[in-house]
Amino acid sequence: MIGHEKKLGWGFTAPALVWTLAFFVAPFLVMIAMSFANLEGRTLIWGVHLDNYIELANRPYLLRAVAVSMQITFIVTLASVVLAYPLAAIIAFRVPQHWQRFVLLLAILPFWTSYVIRSYAWLLVLAREGLVNQTLIHLGIIAEPITLANSRFATVTGFIHFFVMLLTLTIYANLVQLSPNYRLAARDLGANTFQIFRHVILPLSLPGIVTGAFLTFVLCIGDYVTPHILGGNNELTMPQVVMVQLGRRADFPLASAMAIVMMGFVTIAYLASARWLRLDRL
């Protein structure tokens, strides 16, 4: 009987395992091997060469790209958490239960449009003759249009618009699972609203925050579209530099080495957040 259950278990998991091995593990191993290969002319020389990693350390623009990617990712993650938490808390605690689904639907409405179109829409909104500048001029706050598009500000704005919604969902999913009894018990014991938040709600909602923040970190550090469209190439991020290696040069070994370095940062982020990471809260 146990043998039959085991077989059944393997039967159910086999498709997922095969899929993961074929489309994640195998390509990942190829990418690792590729990062140690060399490109001589159009010929790929397989082997264990550290040239690509040495190149990474020796080219200042690559180090700058790493720094820019990390700065943008940290700013976006932090700002998204700060903005998403109150929104999720209002939906979870203040909005009547039968309205919550509708409000969540409104929150994820921007996801219904294409990511690329949304980025170009932001470009128009932030342009010198766009909505933001015209409104500020109309209100007399500024006399001349200011540069908002094609900047780090634009990149961060585009990212935050996307990730606040993602974080709102993960934090909301966490908050609605908290029994109201925790808050009532804390209040009975004399805690004020801030103390309840600081000592009860926040620690209990940490898994939702960390899960959302981790997803934000992963998606943000690997994103090519938003910095490319909204940043105006005024700062290069890691994915942009990877794309340049592939576009004309087709230098897959160097591009793979850069991708491995990016994965290194993601791994560090994972290890730092593993204690609180609860993907089952999604």
């Binding site: 128009l124 342009a127 010198r128 003759e129 540069t147 598009a149 094609n150 490319h228 190439n233």
Partner: peptide, 18 residues
Amino acid sequence: AASVAGVVAAQTALATGE
């Protein structure tokens, strides 16, 4: 330069007065 842009982004920048 205000930006370094691909085809669509450069057209958009010119057309919108950026």
